[in-house]
Simulated assay, not measured.
Amino acid sequence: MARVVVLDYGSGNLRSAERALRRVGADVEVTSDRRAALECDGLVVPGVGAFAACMAGLREVRGDRIIDRRLAGGRPVLGVCVGMQILFERGIEHGVETEGCGQWPGTVSRLEADVVPHMGWNTVRAPQRSVLFDGLDADTRFYFVHSYAALRWELTLEHPMPEPLVTWATHGSDFVAAAENGPLSATQFHPEKSGDAGAHLLTNWLKALG
Results as ranks from 00 to 15, higher is better:
residue 70 R to K: 11
residue 102 G to V: 03
residue 109 S to T: 12
residue 107 T to Y: 10
residue 88 F to Y: 09
residue 94 H to A: 15
residue 102 G to C: 07
residue 77 V to N: 05
residue 84 M to V: 07
residue 89 E to R: 12
residue 122 N to A: 14
residue 110 R to T: 05
residue 100 G to E: 05
residue 107 T to S: 15
residue 88 F to P: 06
residue 115 V to A: 13
residue 104 W to M: 11
residue 129 R to A: 15
residue 57 G to H: 02
residue 89 E to K: 09
residue 73 G to Q: 13
residue 60 E to G: 06
residue 128 Q to W: 13
residue 81 C to S: 12
residue 125 R to V: 15
residue 64 D to Q: 04
residue 60 E to I: 04
residue 96 V to A: 14
residue 82 V to L: 13
residue 75 R to E: 14
residue 109 S to P: 01
residue 87 L to Y: 01
residue 56 A to C: 03
residue 95 G to I: 08
residue 102 G to R: 06
residue 115 V to R: 14
residue 105 P to I: 12
residue 81 C to W: 07
residue 65 R to K: 13
residue 126 A to V: 02
residue 71 L to I: 02
residue 72 A to H: 03
residue 109 S to E: 14
residue 75 R to P: 03
residue 90 R to W: 01
residue 116 V to M: 11
residue 112 E to Q: 09
residue 88 F to Q: 10
residue 100 G to N: 01
residue 99 E to H: 10
residue 87 L to S: 03
residue 60 E to Q: 13
residue 121 W to F: 14
residue 75 R to I: 11
residue 90 R to Q: 12
residue 102 G to I: 06
residue 125 R to N: 11
residue 75 R to N: 10
residue 91 G to D: 10
residue 127 P to N: 06
residue 77 V to A: 07
residue 126 A to L: 04
residue 54 C to T: 08
residue 106 G to L: 04
residue 95 G to D: 05
residue 91 G to T: 06
residue 61 V to N: 02
residue 109 S to G: 13
residue 119 M to I: 08
residue 93 E to V: 01
residue 55 M to N: 09
residue 60 E to D: 14
residue 120 G to E: 09
residue 100 G to H: 01
residue 68 D to A: 15
residue 120 G to C: 13
residue 105 P to M: 13
residue 130 S to I: 00
residue 63 G to C: 08
residue 64 D to P: 01
residue 127 P to K: 07
residue 110 R to H: 10
residue 80 V to S: 07
residue 59 R to P: 00
residue 68 D to C: 09
residue 79 G to P: 02
residue 123 T to K: 14
residue 126 A to W: 12
residue 116 V to A: 12
residue 96 V to T: 14
residue 108 V to N: 14
residue 83 G to W: 08
residue 61 V to Q: 03
residue 94 H to P: 11
residue 92 I to D: 08
residue 91 G to Y: 01
residue 103 Q to P: 00
residue 115 V to K: 14
residue 102 G to Y: 06
residue 76 P to V: 06
residue 87 L to F: 05
residue 130 S to E: 08
residue 74 G to M: 11
residue 127 P to H: 10
residue 82 V to M: 10
residue 100 G to C: 02
residue 82 V to C: 03
residue 97 E to T: 15
residue 60 E to A: 13
residue 107 T to K: 11
residue 129 R to F: 08
residue 111 L to W: 09
residue 59 R to H: 04
residue 86 I to C: 01
residue 115 V to G: 02
residue 111 L to F: 12
residue 96 V to Y: 09
